[in-house]
């Protein structure tokens, strides 16, 4: 299990990195934390001709507050930095709750926030999180830069809206809306494994206590992070009674997801877990939105 050969570049500035991306494009892979990429290369399931290592670009490793009250996370910020960030705990409690579910301490010490987003593993938590909170991805190339909404960024199995010469350099997390509540629920075979199913929920209650904006995103049940729009429609404008939540969860399982079967779980079991976890997440998120301790 030794990786195939490749040409290696370790730019020390973003400009240099973008130049390399422009030169090598399709044949190049960005090396961020490497916690998925290098394992894949060791299995010889990936054989990029060129690796462009972003680890020597300090400006990509930041966590900053935004003017809108959210946070900006640099792409090369390690998971552990996000996990331990006081700013994240305050401004993005859903993310704070998500981080301990990502693999194990050693992986979080090396793996990066932007790497996980750009890798777009359908079983990974962060892409689902980003959809739930309507995060935005900053893609940069020699041609310029653009912000991509999370809903537009993840387009399929391990694939994103990035052009071959683009690099994810940062992720923007909006502020938590007023009267909002969140919940993260995950089931995995073992502690730290990729999720069988996980759900990231963020919702807002209006002044009357009816559901306003409901964002329910799943991982492990599709080709990418799946946003449960049918379930959200059930909740929209409704007071979140147990019956309504139950109905929404059932719709999420029946209409919103089309899970695959693998050695760990059948499609039927995953669908069932979507129902169970949706119910639990919605219940907890609604309680938080209503100001209750969860």
């Amino acid at each position: 299990m030794k990786p195939p050969p490749f040409a290696y570049h370790a730019p020390t500035t973003l400009d240099e990195a973008l130049q390399l991306m422009a030169e090598h494009g399709y044949g190049a892979k960005v090396l961020a934390g490497g916690q998925s990429l290098i394992a894949t290369m060791n299995f010889r399931l990936a054989a990029p001709a060129v690796l462009i290592d972003l680890n020597k670009i300090p400006e990509l490793s930041i966590i900053q507050p935004t003017a809108e009250g959210g946070a900006l996370v640099g792409a090369m910020t390690r998971h552990v930095q996000v996990e331990q960030s006081e700013l994240i705990a305050r401004t993005a409690p859903l993310l704070h709750a998500t981080m301990p579910h990502i693999a194990h301490p050693q992986i979080r010490n090396r793996g990066t926030f932007g790497g996980s987003i750009a890798h777009a593993d359908p079983a990974a938590e962060l892409p689902a999180f980003l959809r739930a909170v309507r995060g935005q991805v900053l893609a940069q190339s020699r041609r310029g830069q653009r912000w991509i909404d999370a809903d537009d960024f993840f387009i399929g199995l391990f694939s994103t809206a990035l052009e071959p010469d683009e690099i994810v350099t940062a992720v923007r997390l909006p502020a938590m809306p007023a009267r909002s509540g969140w919940s993260m629920q995950e089931l995995s075979r073992r502690h730290g494994d990729f999720a069988l199913v996980a759900v990231e929920a963020l919702l807002t209650l209006d002044a009357d206590g009816a559901c306003d904006d409901v964002r329910l995103a799943f991982c492990g049940v599709g080709e990418g992070p799946v946003l449960a729009t049918a379930a959200a429609a059930v909740l929209q404008g409704q007071r979140p009674t147990a019956e309504v939540i139950e109905a929404a969860a059932a719709i999420a399982a029946s209409d919103d997801v089309d899970p695959h079967s693998d050695v760990h779980a059948t499609s039927a079991y995953r669908r069932h877990l979507v129902d169970v976890l949706a119910k639990r997440a919605l219940t907890a998120a609604c309680a938080r939105a209503a100001g209750e301790e969860v």
Partner: peptide, 10 residues
């Protein structure tokens, strides 16, 4: 990843 040895948590 697929053959699951129990960890300290299991």
């Amino acid at each position: 990843m697929d053959y699951l040895l129990p960890t300290s948590m299991e």
